[in-house]
Structure formats: structure tokens, C-alpha cells
């Protein structure tokens, strides 16, 4: 946490809307990408981001600086995701669009590379989609670790702190998660080899 961020946090504790807006700027993209990868769905991702920032705003008075602020925010975001999952399981909903996609063995719909896709990048985009589907099929705890490590550049130490787990557990579980992903990607191995 740098000095500027620390000052912003102190201003946020005084309910300074401008500071909170600025703090949001620092974390918006990280939170959105984390939420999008976790949920696999832009609508849910937006809900997660919104709820995360509400909780951050309401709880920032309690942030004492003992943990890294980023770690604290990611921990909240992960809890928001888990809460939403729990709620969704209690009240399952199936959209027509989801049902159609499942028929076509498409688990994810929205996460697609937004960049132009000429022939030479189409394969990478396809790999990204397949990988996202594979990530979505992991247990939540493994999914969180994979996303934090590979898309948010979090260290094992930070992931351990975010998930409140021993670092050795994080390392071993992440290794197992990567092996699981490898296995899930095996059927399309020819794509990798091209």
C-alpha cells in the first residue's frame, strides 16, 4: 500500500466521496476482472463489484492497515462471490439463454476476447474460452486461487492471506488445480499443439 493509497483510505474513513471515487478507480478494473473470471458472467460480475464496493465503503472504518488494503479488498470480493453462489444455490434460476448454451455444451457465454479476431488470434481466443470453461468447472476454492495467481498476479503469500489458508496449502492446492485444468484441456490438446 503506497502513501497515496493510505491517504485515500484515511479520507474515505471521513466519508470523502471524492476519495472513494478515486479509490474505486484504483480497483475497478481489478475487481471487475476478478469478478468476471469468478462468475463467468458480466451481469453477475457487475453485481459482485457493486456489492464489494458497498461492503468496502461500509467497513473501511474498520480497516486498520494491518493487512494490505488490496488483500483486504480481494478478501471481501471473494466473500461476496461465495455469498452470491450460496444464494444462487438456494434459489436456482435458469435463464433461457443459459439453457440454450448448455445444449451446445457452452458453459460460458459472455467472456470472449473483445479484440478483433483475425485468423491468427482466433485460436488464442478459442483457447481462452475453453480455459474459462475449465476454470468455471473447478471447485470455488481452486478457482479463486487460479484466478488470483494467474490473472491478478497475486503471490502465494497474498493468496494465503486473502483465503486465510497456510501458504503450503495454497501451493499444493494450486498445483492440483493446474493439473485438473490440464486434464480438462486434454480433449482439445491438438489446439495447443498447433
Amino acid at each position: 500500500m503506497n502513501e497515496h493509497e493510505a491517504r485515500l483510505i484515511e479520507r474515505c474513513k471521513l466519508r470523502d466521496a471524492a476519495a472513494y471515487n478515486e479509490l474505486y478507480s484504483l480497483y475497478e478494473r481489478k475487481m471487475y476482472n476478478f469478478a468476471l473470471r469468478m462468475s463467468g458472467n458480466p451481469d453477475d460480475a457487475e453485481d459482485i463489484v457493486q456489492e464489494t464496493f458497498i461492503r468496502v465503503f461500509n467497513a473501511i472504518q474498520n480497516f486498520r492497515g494491518e493487512a494490505n488494503f488490496s488483500t483486504w479488498v480481494f478478501r471481501i470480493a471473494n466473500n461476496v462471490f461465495l455469498d452470491m453462489r450460496k444464494k444462487a444455490k438456494a434459489h436456482p434460476q435458469t435463464s433461457l439463454q443459459d439453457a440454450l448454451e448448455l445444449e451446445e455444451s457452452e458453459v460460458t457465454r459472455q467472456i470472449e476476447d473483445p479484440s478483433p479476431q483475425p485468423q491468427d488470434v482466433a485460436q488464442q481466443a478459442e483457447l481462452n474460452r475453453i480455459m474459462q470453461r475449465a476454470i468455471n468447472s473447478l471447485p470455488d476454492y481452486q478457482k479463486t486461487m487460479v484466478i488470483l495467481y494467474h490473472t491478478q498476479n497475486k503471490s502465494y503469500e497474498e493468496i494465503a492471506e486473502i483465503m486465510n489458508l497456510p501458504i503450503g496449502t495454497v501451493k499444493s492446492r494450486l498445483n492440483r488445480a493446474r493439473i485438473a485444468l490440464k486434464s480438462k484441456l486434454q480433449p482439445i490438446r491438438e489446439l495447443f499443439e498447433q
Binding site: 478507480s25 471487475y32 476482472n33 464496493f53 476476447d113 483457447l127 487460479v146 493446474r178
Partner: peptide, 23 residues
Amino acid sequence: QTWSVLEALPSFEPPPYLRHRVM
């Protein structure tokens, strides 16, 4: 190879309206 694909996952732009919605 799996690791490489994970590392190459793209980052996404939040929608422009998200900030207003959250705030």
C-alpha cells in the same frame, strides 16, 4: 502449456456505466 494459456488470459474493460452504478 496449460500454464501458458492461463498466463495469456486477457483482461477486460469494465463497462463505462459501472462506476456510476456502483457509486
